[in-house]
Computed example of a mutant assay.
Amino acid sequence: MTSDKEIELIRILEHNGRVETEVLAKMLDESEEDVKVCMQKLEDEQVILSYTAIVDWSKVTKEETIAAMIDVKVTPQRDVGFDEVAARIQRFPEVSALYLMSGTYDLSVVVEGQTMDGVARFVSNKLSTLDAVLSTTTHFRLKKYKHDGVVFNQDEKDRRMVVSP
């Protein structure tokens, strides 16, 4: 069971994984050693899975990756439901995220590639050829406004000309 202090630590790290242990200790009113032990425990229990950076690649290089969200309808497998087909799909290196969904489609697959053609080849040659996959619908990401709570291009001005009747 997770304590209130652990939950508070998790929330802080989820917002900013780079907070130093000394600062975390002051924020939580705990010793640095207790915070280190707690973080290690949460990592060992796979509560904390990763510390990541959110990067706006459009400011680094003009070679952004192409991202697509693919809705997938599948036939669930006896005794394992959607888990077996999800396990197969998540092994593809092109897949950056995979979710079980409610609604019309069963799985939502986020794929990243270098070109639209590369993503299309992934869908036609790898994803749609799986026996359990009944259909797919691919949506290409055109622009990223917000990701994991971080707003992109906040200071960018709207350069469209105002037109009024």
Rank of each mutant, 00 (worst) to 15 (best):
M1T: 12
S3G: 08
S3L: 10
D4K: 15
D4S: 13
D4Q: 15
K5R: 15
E6D: 15
I7D: 10
I7Q: 13
I10W: 09
I10K: 12
I10C: 15
R11I: 09
R11M: 12
E14P: 01
E14N: 11
N16I: 05
E20W: 02
T21M: 04
E22K: 09
E22D: 03
V23S: 06
M27H: 10
D29C: 08
S31K: 13
S31D: 10
S31I: 07
E33L: 10
D34I: 02
V37Q: 12
C38M: 12
M39A: 04
Q40P: 00
L42S: 05
E43H: 05
E43N: 04
D44E: 15
Q46V: 06
I48V: 12
L49V: 13
L49P: 03
S50W: 02
S50T: 06
S50F: 04
S50M: 05
Y51A: 08
A53Y: 09
I54Q: 10
V55S: 03
D56C: 02
V60P: 00
K62S: 07
E64G: 13
A67F: 10
A68G: 12
I70F: 00
T75Y: 11
P76T: 00
P76H: 01
R78L: 14
D79I: 01
V80K: 10
G81F: 00
F82N: 02
F82G: 00
D83S: 07
D83I: 01
Q90P: 00
Q90D: 07
R91H: 11
R91L: 12
R91G: 04
P93N: 05
V95Y: 09
S96H: 13
S96L: 13
A97M: 13
L98I: 15
L98N: 12
M101K: 15
M101L: 15
G103S: 11
Y105H: 14
D106M: 12
L107W: 07
L107S: 05
S108A: 11
V109T: 11
G113F: 01
M116Q: 05
M116Y: 07
G118V: 03
G118H: 07
V119L: 10
V119I: 15
V119S: 10
V119M: 09
A120F: 11
A120C: 08
A120Q: 13
A120S: 15
V123H: 01
V123R: 04
S124M: 07
K126G: 02
K126Y: 13
K126F: 06
L127H: 02
L127M: 01
D131C: 00
D131K: 03
V133N: 01
V133K: 02
L134V: 13
L134P: 00
L134I: 14
S135H: 01
T136N: 05
T138F: 08
H139F: 06
R141V: 07
R141F: 01
R141A: 05
R141E: 04
L142K: 00
K143G: 02
K143T: 03
Y145K: 12
G149H: 02
G149C: 02
V150N: 04
V151Y: 11
F152Q: 11
F152R: 12
F152P: 05
Q154V: 14
E156V: 12
K157D: 03
D158T: 02
D158I: 03
D158A: 03
R159V: 09
R160Q: 01
M161Q: 07
V162L: 10
S164H: 01
S164W: 01
